[in-house]
């Protein structure tokens, strides 16, 4: 069957089987390999993309079900104006080590900040609670999102440190 999905602002069409998963459509058909594919059992969250603006696990959505919808992947974060504050935050706060979980973490963070520009530490932890990171222990990811919230323009102009983990 033919499906057309609006991916990162552009209509993309491919001929796929009905059983084709959205994560495969993005990676195999469009070559957008920024979205990672891990557990394939809707547990790890590395495949998270935004579906009509909200995070979903793309290993558990059929490409056919996404037809006619808007999907945003990690590739859309960087624009002509530079890196998204979330990306910059991951750099500033050392929010990744191996980087496998990072695309999903960044997309959940982006969706959170779009709805709630000033989230609490607890709200950030809740937002990424469906995603696993085997390297960082999460603390630096939370700090990266806090950094992004404090620097909506994406540039570091202050020297303040993030507060995650400093309260009991």
């Amino acid at each position: 069957m033919q499906v057309t999905i609006n991916v990162n602002g552009e209509d993309r069409t491919a001929e796929v089987e009905a059983r084709h998963l959205l994560v495969r459509f993005l990676r195999d058909d469009l070559g957008l390999t920024g979205t990672h594919w891990g557990c394939d059992t809707s547990n790890c969250g590395t495949c998270v993309v935004l579906f009509d603006g909200e995070p979903v696990k793309s290993c558990t959505v059929l490409a056919a079900m996404a037809a006619g919808h808007e999907v945003r992947t990690v590739e859309s974060l960087e624009t002509g104006d530079g890196l998204d504050p979330v990306q910059q935050g991951f750099i500033e706060q050392h929010g990744l080590q191996c980087g496998f979980c990072t695309p999903g973490m960044m997309m959940s963070a982006r969706a959170l900040l779009d709805r709630n520009p000033d989230p609490s530490e607890q709200e950030i932890r809740e937002a990424i609670s469906g995603q696993l990171c085997r390297c960082t222990g999460y603390l630096n990811i939370v700090r990266a999102v806090q950094w992004a919230a404090r620097h909506p323009a994406g540039t570091a102009n202050e020297t303040e440190t993030e507060t995650a983990g400093s309260t009991p």
Partner: peptide, 9 residues
């Protein structure tokens, strides 16, 4: 119940 991305679907 589950987590935010699962609850979105």
């Amino acid at each position: 119940i589950a987590d935010p991305p699962v609850r979105n679907r």
